[in-house]
Design a protein around this nucleic acid. Structure first.
Lengths: 202, 202
DNA sequence: AGGGTTATTTACCGTCTAGTACAAATTTAT
DNA sequence: ATAAATTTGTACTAGACGGTAAATAACCCT
């Protein structure tokens, strides 16, 4: 049988932890964007040399994509948990308040790497730009599907437009990412969340 | 008396129009961001060589800042005109509908260069990043001042929170820039504008 | 102890980057 | 005509970029 472990038991063991190195890479990409991040930035932050980076993660592009995967699977991620709230209103509520808390959190760079990692960028970043764009669009599609379900469940009126509700919420969430970059605090974003919810049917 | 014209009447005349060249530069920066734009990208789009660019605009950073000035003074700019509408609600209305039309306009890159020109970027872009951040914050301050005035005018209730209203509007406007990058149409953004206005006191 | 395997280090590659020196070209003023 | 002023095109610089070759080091298994 073939062994599928990612840490083989032969050869010299890796001197660094891949996950913490990936966290460091994520932080740099988050702060500087894909184009603005150099390999020197990465190796310095990750505490490894270039050949180690390439052996472990492929290249800059693949490293970025893996960092984004990590980002979305982190325990402090709020998007997927919010989707599971029992009513559409509670989904919106948890998503907005979660974003308010998370995006201005000083424990990491402000905003959202999926929004600001490769928004306007060089041709060299085309692949990662598209990957991020897809994530944003898919997030909104998940919101929409959740609101369609809410209409079936009866906690949204049958007249509600799930697609527009999802896009409205997506717009505010993405706008909050910019606000956090502008220096807005969690409390200020919470107030925006509150206003946003006033337009939301309950 | 000293002549202050920018086109001196001695020496070889400039073979290109500075304003149209600046428009071309703006378009590239808008599409690729500051870090993602190379001097080759610029000279190619502007149809001039590097020494001409440096002689006319200083360097990459100064060229970017001049392109942003041009951007904000363009006739299709909607921000300042909307501020002059007679009531707070009409200000919000014109700003949101103007943004919906403008940001998804296929006649130029999608979104807003003030939002996406240098959001996450290298240290080399620190100056332009800060310049854009200041413009975003100042825009919101202008909105806030306009809403304070509206409270005095009586077209906003005295209980209204001008700062939060301005931040809410700013958040949606900046979110619309991301939405336009996501491929949202003007019609879809118009629907978001409509929802946004439902939370706005009138 | 030795062979196989993998990671690490150092040094390097070609290409692209922002920015410039310089000479030729084109204008106005005398 | 000629001098002064300015732009233009060509060619160049020094350094940073993403990425890699090759030798050495550290581990497991027999």
């Amino acid at each position: 049988m073939s062994e599928v472990s990612c840490t083989p038991n032969v050869g010299r063991p890796r001197a660094f932890d891949m996950n913490t190195a990936l966290e460091k890479a994520l932080e740099v990409f988050w702060r500087k964007g894909y184009d603005g991040t150099s390999l020197s930035d990465l190796t310095e932050a990750m505490g490894i040399n270039k050949p180690s980076l390439y052996a472990a993660f492929g290249n800059k592009e693949q490293l970025f994509l893996k960092a984004i995967e990590l980002y979305e699977s982190r325990p402090c991620s709020f998007f997927l948990p919010a989707l599971e709230k029992p009513t559409a209103y509670q989904v919106a509520e948890h998503m907005l308040y979660g974003a308010a808390l998370n995006m201005a959190d000083q424990a990491h760079p402000q905003g959202c790497v999926v929004v600001q990692g490769a928004l306007s960028c060089s041709e060299a970043a085309a692949t990662v730009k598209e990957a991020l764009l897809n994530r944003r669009v898919e997030g909104e599609q998940k919101l929409r599907a959740r609101f369609e379900q809410a209409k079936l469940d009866g906690d949204l009126p049958a007249s509600a437009d799930a697609e527009t509700l999802a896009r409205y919420l997506g717009t505010v969430l993405q706008g909050m990412a910019i606000q956090a970059n502008n220096g807005a605090t969690s409390e200020q974003l919470r107030q925006v969340a509150e206003m946003t919810l006033q337009a939301f049917p309950r």
